[in-house]
Design a binder for these strands. Structure first.
Lengths: 238, 238
DNA sequence: GCAAAAGTGTTGTGTATACACCCATGG
DNA sequence: CCATGGGTGTATACACAACACTTTTGC
């Protein structure tokens, strides 16, 4: 541990101090589900893939920086963002603090992504910087865990959807099959859904009823802080 | 949102850039249980209480900065630390990124804390900076939630302890009574404990058997990332 | 009428809860 | 012998997993 004088220690404890401190950047793991696959957005730069990132200015919060990444690169596609974790690592010399976010986007809105960003299978994203690799792995872990006890999955679907579509999202994210009857019972017992009254005919079979998420259950409900200094965790959508 | 030229945007995306970015500080919510109360450590500075904090140098990781706070102010008392969340807030002008940690200490080792640090009831910590208040509230939420599904509570007790002591920790942290028989069944079903063979006589009643945590179950097991760049989440202890 | 997905119930199994008494010791 | 905390078992409710057939439609 480095040795400091009493004055230096005091200046480090009483904010703000003016000595140099680690740099900050923000990175986003943006998920979507399309064609039966869980995809993440990566930038193809220097023959190596990397998470979309941004160095926040002195004038924006962490959440705002994450929102900016999503807005600039994906327009209104992202419907949900949540802070994941902060890592510190040596990036070219000094320590950098990387604050990471998990975000969810609608497949419909992700057809054309500007710039060098492309979609890759979340389970096999290819060659990745080790830090980015860990972030992606942890984002996947968290997404899967949250699927079980929050309403997070609805952000991967349009406002109205069939129960089979919802089940397909669960199966793709969790990477395993789910029993149809148990799934429907569990979802309906949670009381988050209501029928829209409409139904969808899309083949030579019985039409499916459409459901929507009941308002006031739109946000997640568990184990995420309610910081009044950064109230907006929802990005787009109503 | 601020307007940037294409060059400025590029420099923000390609790390490291040299423009000014938010400052970073680290704060720790250190819990202990003593005299049937859940306590947190606060500094009594400027007639206002504040969380122990530190501005990390260019030469230390976030985890190392948290460890340093604990080591300098509490010696070897802290036995566990875990990153909580990162907040950004306007501290005297520009944005500051505050990375927060939850830590647990042994009551026995916390008798004399150097400097201006003192212990306060975690539920009624008194007047606190709004940011610190939110951090404390969230730390409490997380500690209570983790108590239910991890072995985190053992870090509030010495290496060997009675089941009644363990139950008392749960009751104090969760702030509710727990059924003795169900508690013991649940704990033993988890398979984390083993009897030491010794017992403790401390009154005119039957002696209590002493238990210890089985090694390899010492760390928490769920929903916390395994960053290889910051492997040490355990601070002191064996 | 047939292919294809939508929709629906029951049964068993394990898990959490509520609850009351005997045991070992010190004084 | 009595006061004190240590230690134990059972009955019930609830949540979850396994499992197969009928319904509605397009062609």
């Amino acid at each position: 541990m480095e040795q400091l004088t009493a004055e230096e220690q005091k200046s480090r404890r009483d904010l703000p101090s003016l000595n140099s401190a680690p740099r900050v950047d923000v990175r986003v793991v943006l998920f979507t589900v399309r064609d039966g696959q869980l995809l993440i957005a990566l930038q193809d730069q220097n023959s190596c893939r990397a998470l979309p990132r941004w160095v926040p200015s002195l004038d924006e919060s962490l959440d705002a920086a994450a929102t900016r990444i999503l807005a600039e690169q994906f327009g209104g596609a992202a419907r949900y963002q949540e802070q994941l974790y902060s890592v510190s690592h040596r990036g070219e010399g000094n320590w950098t603090v990387t604050v990471t976010y998990l975000a969810l986007a609608l497949a419909e809105a992700t057809g054309a992504t500007p710039g060098s960003t492309a979609w890759f299978n979340a389970n096999t994203p290819g060659e990745l910087d080790p830090v980015d690799r860990m972030i992606v792995d942890y984002a996947l872990l968290r997404l899967r865990a949250k699927l079980e006890y929050t309403a997070i999955a609805f952000h991967l679907l349009p406002p109205s959807f069939t129960l089979s579509e919802l089940q397909a999202v669960y199966e793709v994210v969790l990477d395993r099959e789910v029993d149809k009857r148990n799934f429907r019972r569990r979802i309906q017992a949670a009381g988050l859904l209501e029928v829209t009254g409409e139904s969808r005919r899309e083949g030579s079979h019985r039409p499916a009823r459409l459901y929507r998420l009941r308002t006031a259950h739109d946000a997640e409900t568990y184990l995420t802080p309610a910081w009044t200094t950064q109230p907006a965790r929802k990005v787009a959508g109503q």
